[in-house]
């Protein structure tokens, strides 16, 4: 998988173009925003006005979601669940490749498996990591959410009742 020109250019630290076009992004490093198709992606996209303030690359598992992110850099990886080992491996390798190419300073995800890989591997590669547990996990934290905890620098739940000491923090929701 080959990173798009814009993403690869900035990841390599090459000179940027003249001061025209979109406003100057907040922050020097790249932001990787990743979520699986469906509700995970729908929740992530609700943060777009904020995420677009940074040098963001969006990653999901369905090519058709490009319509949701305008002209922002957009990449697709294989969807995976813990029931399918082959796809898990493929998904993890694609995520790892993206991380190596883009060298994000922050990885933010709303799940599920590819987001978890990005969090786990991104952390190993030095990124700060944000796990936002899905709104769908209204009564208990998702399995990937619980596993994410160890690798997340910021762990948010969207339901106040699920916040706890040593666990996720509640800071509102994407609704």
């Amino acid at each position: 998988m080959i990173a798009d020109a814009r993403a690869a250019g900035s990841a390599a630290g090459s000179a940027t173009g003249p001061a025209e076009g979109p406003p100057v992004p907040r922050g020097r490093k790249r932001l990787l925003a990743i979520a699986s198709a469906g509700g995970h992606w729908a929740e992530l996209v609700r943060l777009r006005p904020l995420l677009d303030e940074y040098k963001v690359t969006y990653v999901t598992t369905n090519r058709g979601y490009r319509v949701d992110v305008g002209d922002q850099p957009f990449r697709v990886v294989t969807e995976a669940s813990r029931w399918d080992r082959l796809r898990l491996v493929r998904s993890a390798l694609q995520v790892l490749w993206l991380l190596i190419r883009l060298r994000p300073g922050v990885v933010i995800t709303t799940g599920a498996a590819p987001g978890w890989f990005a969090l786990f591997l991104g952390k190993k590669l030095g990124a700060k990591t944000i796990w936002i547990d899905s709104l769908a996990n209204g009564e208990e934290l998702s399995m990937s959410g619980q596993r994410a905890a160890k690798h997340a620098d910021l762990w948010l739940t969207q339901w106040p009742e699920l916040a706890r000491e040593g666990g996720p923090e509640y800071a509102g929701s994407v609704l």
């Binding site: 490093k29 790249r30 932001l31 943060l47 904020l50 922050v106 620098d153």
Partner: peptide, 15 residues
Amino acid sequence: PILERLRGFMDGALS
């Protein structure tokens, strides 16, 4: 509030 929480975190981590 989720926006301010995330912005504060990302500003620090991406600078």
